[in-house]
Simulated assay, not measured.
Amino acid sequence: MTEQQNPAERHPTPDFPAQDQPHPGWTGPMDPPPDHGEDTYRGSGRLADRKALITGGDSGIGRAVALAFAREGADVLFTHLDSEKDEAAETARWVEEAGRRAVAVECDVREEDNCRALVDRAVAEFGRIDILVNNAAYQMSQPDGIEAISTEQFDRVMRTNLYGMFWLCKLALPHMPEGGSIINSASVQAYKPSPHLLDYATTKGAIVTFTQGLAQMLIGRGIRVNAVAPGPVWTPLIPATLPDTTEFGKQAPIGRPAQPAEMAPAYVFLASQEASYITAEIVNATGGTPLP
């Protein structure tokens, strides 16, 4: 039985050591190290024999979700960037240690052809897609305001966070059976945007709207669409994109950032049959920040 703990004291709290990484960031240098549930997540067969496609599964929330899905009985195909091959190998190792198939695919979801090839690969490997998790994302802090957001950056944020999600939902649909589940990664930024993350927050607001609209469109096909909206989560994206991480997560009422392992159960629930009456919903996991 898992020991009952005060949630504010369960994981490391700021202040953290100063740290900085080039994008996209890596797990190894992070201090404290992120927890993906390696030593704590216990499966119970809730996703037995499901076939899952997860974008951005090499680290952070994506790795935690891949690990949890595998321990719940799912085979997992996940994406990573070229610079994240070592991170992807670690995710694959945890999936395989759970006794499930792991397929790591280098894929930049900013290009439609890449998304098409990704879906084709998933179908070739698994025959179908039961669960699609759109988790890949890009952000870059610009404390100097909108004037500092280049068209190149804006385009990258939009294409990674929105276009990739749109293409993958559209392309995966013909291969999703009744009972399938699409889960998108939104954010507290959708509701309480930080000025220095203006473009990123804009995409997260769009993801909420897209999720709720697509859910109404697809329920007639027996496919549910939901999203998880995390608050601050301690992932490699943080030291790679924010100028100061020492107090990261301190603003949350819980007083600390989430660990990726604390997000994964929400994705498992939404993918499972226990959530059969839940669609068009946003599961807010913000550490106590009230949202509408």
Rank of each mutant, 00 (worst) to 15 (best):
A240I: 07
E97W: 02
G231A: 02
G62Q: 02
T235H: 02
A52Q: 13
D86Y: 03
A66N: 12
E147C: 00
D75V: 10
A285F: 10
Y191T: 10
T289W: 03
M263Q: 06
A88N: 10
A264F: 14
A18G: 09
I183S: 03
L47K: 08
E97K: 12
H36Q: 05
G205P: 09
W234G: 01
D130N: 01
G205F: 02
V109Y: 01
R100W: 10
V95K: 06
M165V: 13
G37R: 08
R10L: 15
I238R: 02
V103M: 02
A74R: 10
C107I: 13
I223Q: 00
F78T: 07
G43E: 06
E90A: 04
P292G: 01
T289N: 00
G43I: 14
P195W: 05
V109H: 00
H175S: 14
F78W: 09
S181A: 15
N114D: 04
H80W: 06
V123W: 11
P143H: 07
A98Y: 06
Q153T: 06
T13P: 00
A89D: 10
I146C: 01
L173E: 00
N134P: 11
P7C: 04
E152N: 12
Q273K: 14
I61Q: 03
E111A: 08
G57N: 04
R121N: 12
E111Q: 10
G127R: 11
A104M: 13
F269Y: 15
G249M: 15
R128C: 08
A92F: 07
T27M: 02
A227F: 09
A201K: 11
G37W: 06
N6T: 08
F210D: 00
L173Y: 00
Y200M: 07
T209D: 00
A201T: 14
L291A: 07
Q4R: 15
E247L: 08
E125S: 14
N6E: 05
M165A: 06
K51C: 10
D31L: 15
Q5G: 05
V103F: 03
T202I: 14
V268N: 03
H11C: 04
A52P: 13
M217G: 00
A8C: 11
R46A: 08
F248P: 01
G220E: 07
